[in-house]
């Protein structure tokens, strides 16, 4: 009864009301900033007295916004490469290896995902101050790779788990070297897992703010650090414009993911 949609009766109306309200609650801030970013009011009066594109012009003509976007992009790309290159062999070890402490190792690899980011950020910040990696690109890449690595590992391990090793063995029996077999048989077979790993790693780094706040210097800032800094000063509508652009990239990524999923289903 309670799990039959057609027989809920009045309860259905109640559940729909709550779901509608929650959906509105989840959409409200997103729609709101999009609207504000086109509003003319410096003081974020809503509804805006008139509409304008000036905040977007301001963002696109400010070299600091562009610079930090470029920095974020570079770091995210390098983190993606590093995280996939580390997670690929590590997945082979975790899925196919049998050695003492394998579960401990897996637990260690997953810890950066579950521990509070601020603890990791503070700890790494202390180390980087000593070894001179604070405020460097390399520091950013190391920090974000550690955070992205568990997500990449899950994605690749899961698809490797579903791949029949006998196919790889067959290639070796036919004369391929083990490495050739892995690169030309196994890797193409688990490519979707690798793709997902790359996507997660990129997004992880692109959106990450807590560690980035500690790693950044006045001259090296990612986009989230720049937004964070701006937010602490004032609530300028330029931030609404940047936020709206970020929402658009999110929508584009969701659309791309949906298209890929459809393509696979076919």
């Amino acid at each position: 009864m309670l799990l039959a949609y057609d027989r809920l009766g009045g309860l259905r109306v109640a559940l729909w009301c709550i779901t509608g309200l929650v959906s509105a609650f989840l959409l409200l801030p997103i729609v709101f900033i999009a609207a504000l970013s086109f509003g003319s009011s410096q003081w974020l009066v809503f509804p805006p007295p008139s509409w304008t594109m000036k905040w977007y012009q301001q963002v696109f003509s400010d070299p600091r916004w562009l610079e930090s976007t470029w920095t974020s992009f570079q770091i995210a790309v390098l983190v993606t490469i590093a995280s996939v290159l580390l997670a690929l062999p590590a997945s082979f070890a975790l899925v196919r290896g049998s050695f003492p402490g394998k579960h401990v190792l897996r637990g260690l690899f997953m810890t950066p995902m579950v521990m509070p980011v601020v603890v990791f950020a503070v700890a790494l910040y202390a180390l980087f101050l000593r070894v001179g990696l604070s405020g460097t690109m390399l520091g950013f890449i190391i920090a974000h790779t550690i955070l992205a690595f568990p997500f990449a590992l899950i994605a690749i391990s899961n698809s490797l788990q579903g791949f029949d090793k006998a196919i790889e063995d067959a290639a070796v029996l036919c004369g391929a070297t083990p490495l050739q077999a892995k690169l030309r048989i196994t890797l193409p077979a688990i490519r979707l897992g690798v793709l997902a790993a790359a996507l997660f790693s990129f997004l992880m780094s692109w959106d990450e703010v807590v560690v980035a706040i500690f790693m950044a210097s006045p001259t090296l800032q990612t986009l989230p650090v720049r937004i964070w800094g701006a937010l602490r000063q004032d609530l300028s509508p330029a931030i609404a414009a940047v936020s709206t652009l970020l929402v658009l990239t999110t929508l584009a990524a969701m659309l791309a993911a949906a298209i890929v999923r459809k393509a696979i289903a076919k």
């Binding site: 709101f32 959106d207 703010v209 937010l231 609404a240 709206t244 969701m254």
Partner: peptide, 15 residues
């Protein structure tokens, strides 16, 4: 969509 939207963007909206 709400989950994937940049955390700072969402927090800014609430501010």
């Amino acid at each position: 969509l709400s989950m994937w939207t940049n955390l700072l963007a969402r927090t800014y909206a609430w501010m």
